[in-house]
């Protein structure tokens, strides 16, 4: 399933409703829901905040995959930005050295099971997979 969303934080409620619909229609394990909600928001907000050279809608695609759910966000007519290269956050730093910001992509990279990036014809597409806890544990055991 797919849907386009305009470039506004006000769209977050509609994105949650879309996600709810996909999970219901495709019988996706709800244990992945928090990860999907968080990662979709962080990636969407990042695109809206930093890809300011375009006013085109952002496409979100979401489908069940073996053991979980695969989600893609595509931003059209923008510069390349590979979230896998986002800076890390020192989560052990003391309070005086911590600053608000920078946690979004850090959490995405921490929480997804895999993430892929494509950049073609100025279109930026990020795809991630979130697996249910049981699947992740089985993968970890088999690794």
């Amino acid at each position: 399933m797919q849907q386009e969303f305009s470039r506004s934080f006000d769209q977050l409620n509609d994105i949650v409703a879309f996600t709810e619909q996909v999970f219901t229609d495709q019988g996706i394990d709800p244990s992945t829901r928090y990860v999907v909600d968080l990662c979709v928001e962080e990636l969407f907000v990042n695109m809206v905040t930093y890809d300011t050279e375009t006013d085109r809608d952002i496409l979100i695609e979401m489908n069940a995959c073996p053991g979980g759910v695969e989600v893609s966000l595509t931003d059209y007519g923008v510069e390349r930005f590979d979230p896998r290269n986002a800076g890390t956050v020192d989560v052990d730093a003391p309070l005086e050295q911590r600053t608000p910001g920078g946690l979004g992509l850090f959490l995405v990279l921490k929480m997804v099971d895999s993430i892929h990036y494509e950049y073609r014809d100025r279109n930026s597409k990020i795809t991630f997979v979130a697996r249910s806890k049981e699947e992740t544990e089985e993968h970890n055991v088999s690794d």
């Binding site: 968080l38 907000v45 600053t99 608000p100």
Partner: peptide, 19 residues
């Protein structure tokens, strides 16, 4: 029910001010 990094920023900013 849910907090994202934007919410974490609010908590951190407030905590630092109060500390």
């Amino acid at each position: 029910e849910y907090v994202s990094s934007a919410g974490l920023g609010v908590l951190l900013r407030t905590h630092k001010r109060l500390m």
